[in-house]
Simulated assay, not measured.
Amino acid sequence: MFDIISVFHEWETTESHREMYTCRPLRPTKARNEYVHAVKTRIEQRSIRIFVLASTEDMTTPYGKITAFDFNPRNLSAEFGYYLPKQNRGQGYGQEMVSRFLNLMFKDPEWGLHKLYATTASGNIPSIKLLKGMGFHLDGIMREHYFIRDRIEDQLHFSLLKREWGKPSV
């Protein structure tokens, strides 16, 4: 089996447009060993869950990942973010990955989720299409929230309730 967390580190260090894929502050990527240790610690503490879409042929070729975080046990909700390296975008992997993730997370007995939510920049059309295609509802807009290079964009907040998952979008 491959060291998947090292692959995540490689994705982060080689992504030339990191600022396009997060609203979080961009910090220099930690050294590989420090990065791997930090991710493993968060997984062990159950503060994040990471899901990977990998090749069914060898299970060693990851196509993308989803990280669930900010679990709120009072409200039974969690945020998630997803990432596909450039070579895997536009091939349907995002839809497959998010669909499988939703199936797993809404059945998970430990977190027992009622709602999952995600945010994206208003200019991230592929992400908006993916979330809407999965049945997510646009809950709100934080105006002029992202500074991305030489422009400013709104932050869109999407959510999906457990009872809505798998039902046709209206």
Rank of each mutant, 00 (worst) to 15 (best):
F2A: 11
D3L: 14
I4L: 01
I5M: 00
S6E: 12
S6N: 06
V7I: 15
F8K: 00
W11S: 00
S16P: 11
H17K: 12
H17N: 14
H17L: 15
Y21T: 15
T22K: 01
T22I: 07
R24G: 13
P25K: 00
R27T: 15
R27H: 13
P28H: 04
T29Y: 00
A31S: 07
A31Q: 06
R32K: 14
N33I: 12
N33V: 12
E34L: 07
K40V: 13
K40N: 13
T41K: 08
T41F: 07
R42N: 08
E44V: 13
R46W: 05
R46K: 14
S47I: 15
I48G: 03
A54C: 12
S55I: 10
S55N: 13
S55T: 10
T56W: 06
T56K: 10
D58P: 07
M59I: 10
P62R: 01
G64E: 02
I66P: 02
F69V: 08
N72H: 13
P73N: 02
P73Y: 02
P73M: 02
N75K: 02
L76A: 12
L76K: 11
S77A: 11
S77E: 11
G81T: 09
G81Q: 03
Y82P: 00
Y83Q: 03
N88A: 05
R89Q: 15
G90Y: 09
Q91P: 07
Y93K: 06
Y93F: 14
Q95K: 13
Q95E: 14
E96P: 00
E96I: 05
M97Y: 04
M97I: 08
M97Q: 02
V98T: 05
S99D: 09
R100L: 12
R100E: 11
R100C: 11
F101A: 03
L102T: 10
L102Q: 07
F106R: 05
K107D: 15
K107T: 15
D108T: 09
P109N: 07
P109R: 06
P109Q: 09
E110G: 07
E110P: 05
W111S: 09
W111Y: 09
G112D: 11
G112Y: 04
G112P: 04
L113M: 03
L113E: 04
H114G: 06
K115V: 13
Y117M: 04
Y117Q: 03
A118K: 06
A118N: 11
T119M: 09
S122Y: 04
N124V: 05
I125L: 09
P126T: 06
S127T: 04
S127Y: 00
K129W: 08
K129Q: 14
K129I: 15
L130R: 01
L130A: 07
L130D: 05
L130K: 01
M134G: 03
M134V: 10
M134N: 04
F136D: 05
L138W: 10
D139Y: 01
D139F: 03
D139P: 05
D139H: 01
G140L: 05
I141N: 07
M142V: 12
R143S: 13
E144G: 12
E144I: 10
H145E: 14
F147V: 15
I148L: 02
I148P: 00
R149S: 14
D150G: 08
R151I: 15
I152G: 04
D154N: 04
L156I: 10
L156D: 07
F158M: 06
L160P: 11
L161A: 04
L161W: 01
R163Y: 02
W165H: 13
G166K: 00
P168N: 08
